[in-house]
């Protein structure tokens, strides 16, 4: 049996067991196949009803950042908080069905590829501001939920996520294959200008950005990719969303290349959040530094043979872009 057929039969068998019904699986297609996860789209047929679903499969349990049931619990937490996230139908830790642990969610229609998302905006100029506002509202709802109700194994950044992030980033700067004076200088400024610990900790998505959002003509439909969700500073999510790399050349639109910061902040505050501009700027700068280190890490993974790939190799030549961005964001610190 080919692997595709095996996944189809495995999904049907698992859902039949889970739902206590006869289930057929049709229209299977692979939406993405990365080293760490595969997203498989399919229709489940139960008692004549056609249900559009997605299976998120961890092909190799050794590479998963968090156990599959923990990630699935974050989606459920978000949905309960009123943030648009795909509904989780079932979680399976048994690797025998499809070759790895997986969870099954509702398939939400819409665009996820950043350039396609930005193309929707060309058709409707009102969509960008609306989407930025909806992102603010969605994040405020997530951040308002009590972290004590999250999965007990959710990643914690301690009582001061600012300090924890500085120490983690400092270690990454030291481990760079090549010394980076720009990142070192940035780290010194971020250390000096660190905000106090946040007034309250929240569950943060961790990778909320253009590319991890499902967007339709009506706006935000769901946030995807919850694998680095953790307890931290709420402004971290807003800063990450607004770094330049997720604007895909629409540099003047700070929020994902589609909206203005004022719309994001207005949505965040309308849904009960408190937008803190100084803390936001710190996290945006920190996010830029972190992504630069992430790209350097990808080049390292190519060079040491752990993930040999021309795409990972190319990331090394993008680090200078992030060095530029981070120095510009810190201009006031060094060139008043």
């Amino acid at each position: 049996m080919n692997p595709f057929e095996q996944v189809r039969e495995g999904l049907a068998a698992f859902l039949a067991k889970e739902w206590g019904a006869t289930v057929e699986v049709e229209n299977l297609s692979i939406a993405s196949a990365g080293a760490r996860r595969r997203n498989v789209l399919f229709d489940a047929l139960r008692d004549g009803e056609r249900i559009p679903l997605v299976a998120t499969i961890i092909p190799n349990a050794a590479v998963q950042i968090m156990p599959i049931e923990v990630e699935a619990s974050h989606l459920r937490f978000a949905e309960a908080a009123g943030m648009p996230a795909p509904h989780v139908h079932a979680v399976c830790e048994d690797a025998s069905f499809v070759g790895g642990p997986f969870f099954v969610t509702t398939r939400v229609a819409g665009e996820t590829i950043p350039r396609q998302v930005l193309r929707l905006l060309e058709k409707d100029p009102a969509l960008g501001p609306r989407l930025a506002r909806q992102c603010g509202e969605a994040l405020a709802r997530l951040h308002a939920a009590d972290p004590a109700r999250a999965h007990p194994r959710i990643a914690l950044a301690g009582s001061d996520p600012i300090e924890a992030t500085l120490r983690a980033v400092e270690a990454l700067v030291r481990e760079l294959l090549q010394p980076s004076p720009a990142f070192t200088l940035a780290l010194r400024a971020l250390e000096r200008e660190r905000p106090p610990p946040p007034a309250r900790l929240a569950v943060v998505h961790g990778d909320f950005r253009n590319g991890n959002l499902i967007v339709g003509p009506d706006g935000l439909r769901a946030a995807l990719d919850w694998e680095i969700c953790h307890v931290g500073d709420p402004m971290e999510d807003l800063g990450w969303l607004c770094q330049r790399m997720w604007r895909f050349r629409n540099d003047a639109l700070e929020v994902g290349g589609f909206g203005a910061r004022a719309d994001l902040a207005a949505g965040y505050e309308a849904a009960g959040g408190r937008f803190e501009p100084v803390r936001f700027h710190w996290w945006k700068t920190m996010s830029t530094l972190r992504w630069g280190l992430g790209l350097a890490g990808q080049a390292k993974a190519h060079l040491d043979g752990s993930v040999p790939s021309i795409v990972m190799a190319a990331s090394g030549r993008r680090v200078a872009e992030l060095e530029w961005d981070v120095l510009m964001l810190l201009r006031r610190s060094f060139a008043p």
Partner: peptide, 30 residues
């Protein structure tokens, strides 16, 4: 640090002329 900042900006302009021409056109002023 004050000497390093403009120096690194100049170096990065040179690196970006190779790695990603035009990237330095956006300077975040807004």
């Amino acid at each position: 640090e004050r000497r390093a900042w403009p120096a690194l900006v100049e170096i990065l302009r040179g690196k970006l002329a190779i790695a990603k021409p035009g990237h330095d056109a956006w300077d975040f002023t807004a």
